[in-house]
Amino acid sequence: MNSRTRAIVLATGLAVLAAVPPVAGLLNQPFYLDLVRRIMIFAIAALSLNLILGYGGMISFGHAAYLGIGAYAVGVLAHYGIDNGFLQWALAIGASALVALVIGAVSIRTSGVYFIMITLAFTQMLYYLGISVEEFGGDDGMRLAAKSQFGLIDLNDGNAFYYLVLAVLVLFLFLGHRLVNSRFGMVIRAARSNEARTRSIGFSPYPYRLAAFVIAGAMCGLAGALLVNHTAYLTPEFMNWTRSGELMFMVILGGTASIAGPVLGAFALLLVEDALSGWTQHWQLILGPLLVLSVLFFRRGLAGLLFGKNE
């Protein structure tokens, strides 16, 4: 598939997403607006994870941590009466970047299965931290005192919020595309395919990997800020390890070889979840084996199916 048909597919996808609010409004089905907005927020998180997982080969099993950090940054400021959205979201991004810097600095020293387990363990640590801080609701979480205030854009307006999320998604798709095709992105990808050769041409992978890890964390932090505004509720469950697993599945289902893949994966996973959970309360009994089968037999992901083999 050449780049032109690729662009057409992408544009069609965006047009469909942009058409959701009016169509949902016409059909008087606000539920779908809500559903697609939630999926897009997770798509942003999955997209950020793909930067390090797909392109960088760093299998982070703790990416939900930044969803949580972003959400807590917004929620805690709102709790103390600061509802300026620019400030809240800047803190969400900054705090996530800082936490990613600390976690990354330790984790990237290791590789392989150690890396998987360590990122998981650090996220679990943050999860327990969230549970034990009673001031912010502890285990139960707390209501978001007020949605982020942006002056012109009112997040209480479902459609406006929807388009804001869509805009962030498009922006991140663009940024991600630029990033992986930049010199920086080349080094990250080179280090994944052959670390020894990367070193021998004069690049030390560590700082590049760490930078990618921090960027991915910061992007996911913004997804967390969106998520808490979407749910209007703050809970440590945002950082639950199953959340990290779901994000990984979105990336793998969608396909790691393209920037848009994880978006497809997010839609596939969450729509299947939604359909199954509407059908039976024991949906995980079906979803689990489905996921196992997809790993065993569906290796190229949805993007591979749609766009053919790239790279």
Binding site: F61, G112, I116, G245, F249, I252, Q284, L287, L291, V292
Partner: peptide, 20 residues
Amino acid sequence: HLDQVLATFGLILFFNELMA
């Protein structure tokens, strides 16, 4: 390892629900 992690994650969902 990535495939192993994902497949066994699927197994966890299955077993938790089965016990429930």
